[in-house]
Amino acid sequence: MKKQIIYSLKSPYRENLDVIGFTFGSGEKSACIVGSTRGNEVQQMYICSQVVHALKKLERQGEITEGRSIMVVPCINYYSMNIGKRFWTMDNTDINRMFPGYEFGETTQRIADGVFRQVQGFKFGIQLASFYQSGDFLPHVKMMKTEFSQPEKMLEFGLPYALTRKPRPYDTTTLNYNWQIWETQAFSVYSYGTETVDEKASQVSVDAILRFLSAEGIVRANVKPGYVSRIIEENTMQQVHTEHGGIFKTLVKIGDTVYEGQVLGEVYNPLDGEKICEVKADKCGTVFFIYNKPLIMQNSVAYKIVDF
């Protein structure tokens, strides 16, 4: 294993921001795994740290295929993590909306540029991503639909669901999208949790990544079998909105099977405790996403339901 600073930025008042990359094996740039790009993505950093831990062990055992190399970058924006901020410390910009970056641009464009120079050129790219909506969801892998993408590769992760997403304009500056533009097959792995470390969920993601690396012949890891995934278009999922704002209580759990018309949750008046509305499923399926905060606004997505 080689540990190196892949990008460094001077700060006026803090130690340098040194982005660390771990490289395993040598030869063909086979896979690159990137953890948190935002200051609140603690679980994503943790998962990467566990991948580093696992790859160290595999390397010691000689189980990294000869002529293949893997890079892991657990955390890019630890400056924000250290002060409890999600986006960049100074100007609140999102590094994951700055790719491929610009060498002579603004600070976060420069960070994105510096990191992207190191993480591009790999055959596969895996990003540990977080959801912008507050909620819990089933572990899954996602791929942007571009001319270059091969969605069937997602099945090798063995996660319960594999989603494809048609890129929206604001997706075009993400790491995942730009990896694909530069001909890296890019995947986003979503784990339960962002700001907290969930051991069980992180192990699911670590296993999925090792399963994929094994399936591609990059490592030889002894991982338990995964799910027989299904590929689903993200926009075919049923989104269940709340008709009113208030206190939200869910009556179902992630992964539950629900039927058409079933009451999934309830919204209560936060001042007098009266029930204001019920949140019902439009059709049957599996609960993929549940909003997880007590306060909810009208028209919030409270649930996402996927066809079995």
Partner: peptide
């Protein structure tokens, strides 16, 4: 307009 969580609407 959109109801916020507690006794208020965004307008």
């Amino acid at each position: 307009e959109n109801e916020l969580s507690v006794n208020e609407k965004l307008k």
